[in-house]
Simulated scan of single mutants.
Amino acid sequence: MTDIAIKNRIRDFYDSLSPHFRDMWGEHLHDGYYEHGDETKEIAQEKLVAYLAKRAQIPQGKRGLDIGCGMGATSVWLARHLGCHMTGITLSSVQVEIAQQHAEQAGVEVAFKVSDADTVTFDEPFDFLWMVGVLGHLPNQHGFLNNSPRLIKSGGRFLLADWVIAPDVSEKDKRKYVDPVLEGMLMPDVASVKNYVNWFEESGYNVISTEDIANATRKTWDEGISITQTPTILQLALELGSDALGLLSAIKGMRKAMDRGLIGYGVVVAEKR
Rank of each mutant, 00 (worst) to 15 (best):
M1P: 07
E211P: 01
W199S: 00
F200I: 07
S154F: 10
W163H: 07
L160M: 06
E104V: 13
P188S: 13
D15F: 09
S209C: 10
P125T: 06
L247F: 15
H102P: 03
S209M: 11
G26N: 07
G261A: 01
I227W: 09
M86K: 01
I10N: 05
V190M: 11
P167V: 02
H102W: 10
G184N: 05
A53G: 11
S18N: 09
S242I: 15
D3R: 07
G83D: 11
F200H: 05
V181N: 03
L135E: 06
N215A: 10
T220G: 04
L135Y: 00
F122P: 06
V193I: 13
A56P: 06
M185Y: 11
I213G: 00
K153A: 07
E211C: 09
L234C: 14
D162R: 03
G68I: 04
Q105E: 13
V178T: 01
L135C: 04
H20A: 14
D15K: 10
V197C: 05
G264Y: 00
E27N: 11
R175C: 12
Q229H: 15
L145T: 00
T217D: 04
A56V: 09
Q105M: 10
S209N: 11
I6Y: 00
K194T: 12
D179H: 14
G261V: 04
G204N: 03
K41Y: 12
W77K: 02
Y33Q: 03
Y177N: 06
K7W: 08
A5W: 06
L234W: 11
T90F: 02
I213D: 04
T217S: 08
P59F: 03
F112D: 03
A44P: 06
I98A: 07
R273N: 14
E46L: 12
R150I: 09
E35P: 05
